[in-house]
């Protein structure tokens, strides 16, 4: 490959794949915020409802 093309290939990989890696690492370091306001609990009462079948 020519030098110029190689530079841009490497740049693309470093910036975009590096960005992916960085965003994964950032998320893993703090998966969830620890300062979420009170409330917002989800209602799970019917999450696993009995299977309904059309007969």
């Amino acid at each position: 490959m020519t030098g110029e093309a190689t530079i841009f290939l490497v740049l693309a990989i470093v910036i975009v794949w590096g960005g992916l890696l960085a965003s994964i690492l950032f998320l893993r370091s703090r998966p969830d915020s620890d300062s979420i306001p009170e409330g917002g609990e989800d209602d799970h009462r019917e999450d696993d409802a009995p299977v309904e079948r059309d007969t």
Partner: peptide, 27 residues
């Protein structure tokens, strides 16, 4: 997503993963 769920940080992962696949496809 559940209400108490992180939105922006996973959003970066999604956006960069999409672009990463585009670069891969380009190659």
């Amino acid at each position: 997503r559940k209400r108490r769920a992180n939105l922006t940080a996973p959003g970066f992962v999604v956006a960069f993963a999409n672009s990463s696949f585009e670069i891969l496809a380009g190659i």
